[in-house]
């Protein structure tokens, strides 16, 4: 359980750090790192912050037994943003492929929200018993 809790904390931090990078970029008007690793806008940065806080809250609430309610909501939110991003990718790529801008279509699928969402999906699979019991 300890390793799962550590994984949760890591994921929470990833969400929060990427939001912070966005804020720094936005305020200082500079570019840090790879653009795929930051949320696309302030709304998504806020979304990431919420999910990160929920993951961290779940971790700190109980390091042994994970706080199920917060974790459950955070997982749902992570997967939701991943799904929305994927649907967005499929729909917009149809249009982009027609205009042969394939690069942008591929760029969309490796965005941070998809990666973090997929990582949360792994967590869900690992924790499904704990959550639903």
């Amino acid at each position: 359980m300890k390793s799962v809790a550590g994984y949760i904390l890591l994921l929470g931090k990833a969400y929060i750090v990427s939001s912070l990078i966005y804020l720094i970029e936005y305020i200082a008007k500079i570019e840090i790192g790879i653009s795929q690793l930051i949320p696309v806008d302030a709304g998504m940065a806020f979304y990431f912050m919420t999910v990160g806080v929920l993951y961290d809250y779940a971790y700190f609430r109980s390091r042994e037994g994970v706080s199920k309610a917060s974790l459950f909501i955070a997982l749902i939110m992570s997967i939701a943003i991943m799904l929305v991003q994927t649907v967005n990718f499929v729909i917009s790529s149809t249009e982009l492929l027609l205009s042969s801008a394939r690069v942008e279509a591929i760029y969309n699928i490796i965005r941070i929200e998809t990666i973090l969402g997929l990582l949360s999906l792994l967590l869900l699979l690992k924790l499904r018993k704990t959550i639903y019991e």
């Binding site: 709304g43 979304y47 919420t50 999910v51 929920l54 909501i73 939110m77």
Partner: peptide, 29 residues
């Protein structure tokens, strides 16, 4: 779940995020 979702701060953050997702779904997509 209700304790988190109806929490005055956490609940509000989750709601704003959910609304953002709803907008993203209906406008971006």
């Amino acid at each position: 779940l209700d304790k988190v979702l109806t929490h005055p701060i956490m609940g509000l953050m989750i709601f704003i995020s959910t609304l953002y997702l709803l907008f993203k779904l209906s406008f971006d997509i």
